[in-house]
Design a protein around this nucleic acid. Sequence first.
DNA 1: TACGTAAGTTCACGTTTTGTGAACTATGGA
DNA 2: TCCATAGTTCACAAAACGTGAACTTACGTA
Lengths: 123, 123
Amino acid sequence: MRPLYHPSLDDISVEGILHALSDPVRAHILAKILRADGAQTCSAFLGISDRPIPKSTLSQHFKALREAGLIRSERKGVELHNTSRCQEISARFGPLLNAVLQAHLAQDQRRGGAQKARRIKRT
Amino acid sequence: MRPLYHPSLDDISVEGILHALSDPVRAHILAKILRADGAQTCSAFLGISDRPIPKSTLSQHFKALREAGLIRSERKGVELHNTSRCQEISARFGPLLNAVLQAHLAQDQRRGGAQKARRIKRT
DNA sequence: TACGTAAGTTCACGTTTTGTGAACTATGGA
DNA sequence: TCCATAGTTCACAAAACGTGAACTTACGTA
């Protein structure tokens, strides 16, 4: 297993962030990590969407978020502990991240996803 | 030639906007259209990047922006007049668009692209 | 009317990216 | 030592992207 790559702050790009968050599943993942008190494991997200996400796909999503600089992942035993890098990001990119997350959230609520959003929040 | 498709406000999505603007060329195009007083034609952007962009590629970029709901294009004779839909978008999506454009701009300036940004501004 | 030209679009096709099942690699118990 | 669990890697099919070449449309100009 390769070591986990995390870009330095300087290597994080606006286009990378936007691309990573242009996928609603990834946006959900980040939002939930951000909301959580402690770290979140990958498998906590297997049922995040209405259709179940395969493990391999989920793994790629985490890799995408990590390599875009949005999360930090540490191996703890058999699992991965994911925390957000939102603070660093916001310090460098200003209101970008909040605006994006907030827009996704508002959209979820606008859509019938009122139920879905609540379910995710609870989980 | 097919008619130009413009999504209604309700059909515009956060993920669509982010995906469209995760390409720096498209972000530049939108920024310039927004800055311009009147409408902008497509061919005004042939030299927007350091390497010249082929016409066909440019055409696809405009289509992407249009179908994401970010610009409105009207045929005027032989050319296309493109204007931004940023006002509508901001009314619905709040600070999202400004944050994204601002982040791109700041990044351009941070990079050696200080020159490039100035050149584009002038054009 | 018939040409020529300029602005975009469409098509075809090679390249890249994405999603996913299957096989694999840790790690932590019993 | 064996098993289960978490996540990764691989291989490959499907989708998205970039671009040259051919095409369409509109506008002169003769």
